[in-house]
């Protein structure tokens, strides 16, 4: 059975690598577009004549957004959400349903190569360059926690995308809704404003939600804003969110999939 999913992975990787120039451009432009927000923060520091906001210096903020730019490509394209939205809207779900594999597992496996391509050719080289240039020091535990948080973030992001996108079954197209939801998620995750800049009570509440895992938590772990002692508890919260979102996804899929309506296409 596992062999079948490995075959799905291999063919998706091969399809993903069919247009190499497109991959390179996607990585470059994702990095550049994610850095635009950095200029806004540079201006904020410069014109407010302050050297730090909530204890975070301009140098740390610059580092924060460089690290964000290196991981942002992983979240590009709404993850599995885009796949399922297109599968249902165009009827291509049929081509996947006729195979002896679980559609939902295969969906995640189909998306995995795209993430790995960005990780290998985008995130890892860029983070290595940032690490060398910035002269930062990172403990092994910090690196392991960072990798674990990226893995948790991958599941949280894709499960949220999955939950929203299966409403395509009833709404025909949910790209607009996904746009709106992910703008809110960007604000809550620390992709635009590092959540440590928010008032303390809001910051503490946000740490209990799944959203900071998509930006603030892994970035802060990497650059050392978060204390190492805090991280195990944060990982427990993240894992709990992955489980909760998995259960919600499972219940909704079981309830919704019998209403899939691919007629006339």
């Amino acid at each position: 059975m596992a062999n079948r999913y490995f075959s799905v992975f291999k063919i998706s990787l091969k399809s993903g690598m069919a247009y190499k120039a497109e991959i390179v451009l996607k990585i470059i432009f994702s990095f550049i577009s994610s850095l635009i927000i950095l200029f806004v923060w540079y201006a904020a520091y410069h014109y407010s004549n302050t050297s730090n906001i909530n204890g975070i210096s301009l140098t740390t903020t610059v580092l924060y957004f460089f690290v964000f730019a290196s991981i942002a490509a992983i979240w590009g394209g709404y993850g599995v959400g885009k796949l399922i939205n297109s599968d249902i809207k165009t009827g291509s779900i049929v081509s996947n349903f006729i195979r002896p594999v679980n559609y939902v597992y295969a969906l995640f496996v189909r998306h995995l190569p795209q993430t790995l391509i960005f990780l290998i050719f985008g995130t890892i080289p860029i983070l290595t360059i940032i690490y060398i240039i910035s002269g930062m020091h990172m403990a092994i535990a910090q690196l392991i926690y960072f990798i674990a948080e990226i893995a948790i973030a991958y599941f949280i992001f894709n499960l949220i995308a999955f939950i929203i996108s299966i409403f395509t079954i009833y709404l025909s197209d949910v790209e607009g809704i996904m746009n709106a939801v992910f703008i809110i998620i960007e604000i809550l995750s620390g992709a635009i404003v590092p959540i440590i800049f928010y008032p303390k009570p809001i910051y503490n509440i946000l740490l209990l939600t799944p959203f900071p895992f998509l930006a603030y938590i892994p970035i802060s772990t990497f650059i050392g804003i978060l204390k190492i002692s805090q991280i195990p508890w944060i990982l427990v919260i993240g894992t709990a969110w992955v489980l909760v979102l998995s259960v919600i996804s499972r219940i909704l899929w079981k309830k919704f999939n019998r209403d899939i309506n691919i007629v006339g296409i």
Binding site: I11, S15, V94
Partner: peptide, 28 residues
């Protein structure tokens, strides 16, 4: 069971040669 849904729901991967689909079928 084997299903062919005309040209509307192709199972041969669009961006790859059919040979890759055939190998994929062999494994699956």
């Amino acid at each position: 069971i084997g299903i062919i849904f005309g040209s509307t729901h192709p199972q041969v991967f669009w961006d790859l040669p059919p040979e890759d689909t055939f190998k994929y079928i062999k494994e699956i």
